[in-house]
Design a protein around this nucleic acid. Structure first.
Lengths: 303, 303
DNA sequence: TCCCGGTGATGCCGCGCGAGTATCAGTTCC
DNA sequence: GGAACTGATACTCGCGCGGCATCACCGGGA
């Protein structure tokens, strides 16, 4: 069913009418619009026919706007202003002054590099909005492939085809213990530990599906320490895991960077000997090339 | 200084782009728009050149909207909707469903016929807004001539060239006295009086410039009663004059209709013998013919 | 493997309609 | 009464929109 309807007028007519209504003078308006006066007269006449309304009264002592013309003027003035702004906005989008970027991150990113990046980015690019979502590595990889995500901070554990990545952090994990943990007594708080010291300690981890490779490397670290780990809970997002440690339910792995700002009632201990290593990368699609907004974000993020 | 700028695109381009962005299919969109597909392709290409932005990605498995295209779409959808509404609104204006009418009135009109008219009008024509202003007769006549006023309720005292009028009220005036007035004592409240009984009573009138003819007829009524009036105050608007009577500062003229709803502390007295006559008319310009909104108002007002 | 159906882009042409020039009709000044 | 305005009209010209025919490209199926 074709919907043949088009507008009975064109932007030309509206711009012409606005100018005549402003100047109340066909010749002057024609000059301003850089067209000949007859063209202007005809355009107005066409508009009046198209709208089936008298818009201007051509009296002997000048032009006056009829009520219908006033109504039309009221309606089109804001519309024409907004239309005129569109090319500017598109230029701003192309130039990277405006736009929005969908960014995903993991708890580690938020605990380390992300706050600085966000602060800096908003100062430099106040017109670009960020959509920030905490999301597990596996979900980020899927979303990046699908194009649902512009870039993500995640923990790679295998080649990431089609993605470009930049390593932001690479650290051996220590462990986070509740203050009530036995190993925390007798002035051993914050002291380095070995993984095999923690054989009896239940661990809080993330769900394996969220990053199977890293999960398995954690188990491998336990194995090479000769320990069979006790997994108490698999929790997500990250902050909840730390909350469980605070509540005394177990230990969790943590990098020194993340341990800079610790909540109360927990202590951080470096590990000697076997320990899993965390890597935080920033990743984005290789193709298409980053749009200006994403490029600006990547630049600030150090990629 | 000519401002040669026009829009780099026309409504056509925007409507075409919207349709393609909706259907993500050039041929189907072309059919919907009742144009051939090549015309559509070229229009989109023109728009992209004009805006210096890629709006659509033509991939092998379909069309997708780029970020710039999404931005454009967001901007133009409401604008196109509003533009499409304009012809309807103008039709409604022509049909009298919407509009506004500037109406002036005097205190007498508001105290008598106007409340009923307003109530009835708003019930019948909720889309038409009234701009109501209390205004002296002379100012109304000037505003009507100048076209600043659609119609007015006033007190004519001479032919009104160029205006059509309709008589709404024609009544002999009585007088309004403060309750404390000497003539109000001894059970003579509300009794008929003669003007010459009021020789000693100061009167509150309106400024002569507001209606010189009527003012002079009031003086003539005094003269034919053999009385030299004492004019205490000339006050406007009307409600203030009644307030002065309430305050005991003098008497004022009032018609029986206006005396229907009296404030406390005043009494109304018909006059026998010479008394000025008030006439209330509704007047409007003979040319141009009343627009639909004014016609609707005149109909309700009984003209 | 080849062909067929389907995508959007392109070449070409006719003509409608926009714009410009010249002019007109009607006022309002001096 | 004519000069200098106003906006409207007549006419011609040429750009550009839109149509048709076709192309280049891709994917699915026999």
């Amino acid at each position: 069913m074709p919907r043949e309807y088009q507008f009975p007028f064109e932007l030309r007519h509206l711009v012409y009418f606005r100018e005549v209504a402003r100047q109340l003078h066909f010749r002057k308006a024609a000059e301003t619009l850089a067209v000949a006066q007859p063209a202007l007269s005809r355009a107005i006449a066409q508009l009046e026919v198209a709208l089936d309304a008298d818009l201007l009264n051509r009296t002997r002592r000048g032009v006056e706007v009829t009520p219908a013309g006033k109504l039309l003027l009221e309606r089109i003035e804001p519309l024409l202003r907004q239309l005129a702004a569109i090319p500017r906005d598109l230029a701003a989008l192309a130039g990277g002054q405006i736009g929005h970027v969908r960014v995903a991150f993991t708890g580690l990113a938020m605990a380390t590099v992300l706050p600085r990046i966000l602060r800096e980015f908003h100062q430099l690019h106040s017109g670009i909005k960020l959509e920030l979502t905490e999301s597990p590595t596996s979900a980020q990889l899927a979303a990046l492939q699908a194009g649902d995500l512009a870039c993500g901070f995640f923990h790679p554990d295998a080649p990431t085809p089609g993605l470009r990545t930049r390593l932001l952090l690479r650290e051996r994990n220590g462990v986070l213990l509740p203050a009530t943990h036995p190993l925390n007594t007798r002035r051993r708080a914050h002291a380095a530990l070995r993984l095999r010291d923690l054989a009896a300690t239940p661990f809080v981890l993330f769900p394996r599906t969220h990053n199977p490779g890293f999960y398995d490397r954690i188990l491998a670290a336990f194995a090479s320490a000769g320990v069979t780990p006790r997994i108490a809970e698999e929790v997500w997002p990250r902050a909840n895991g730390i909350g469980l440690v605070r509540a005394g339910l177990g230990a969790t792995f943590m990098t020194p960077s993340e341990a800079q700002h610790l909540p109360p009632e927990v202590t951080f201990h470096p590990l000697t000997g076997p320990a899993p290593e965390s890597r935080l990368v920033l990743g984005w699609r290789q193709t298409p090339a980053p749009d200006p907004a994403l490029a600006a974000f990547l630049a600030v993020a150090g990629a």
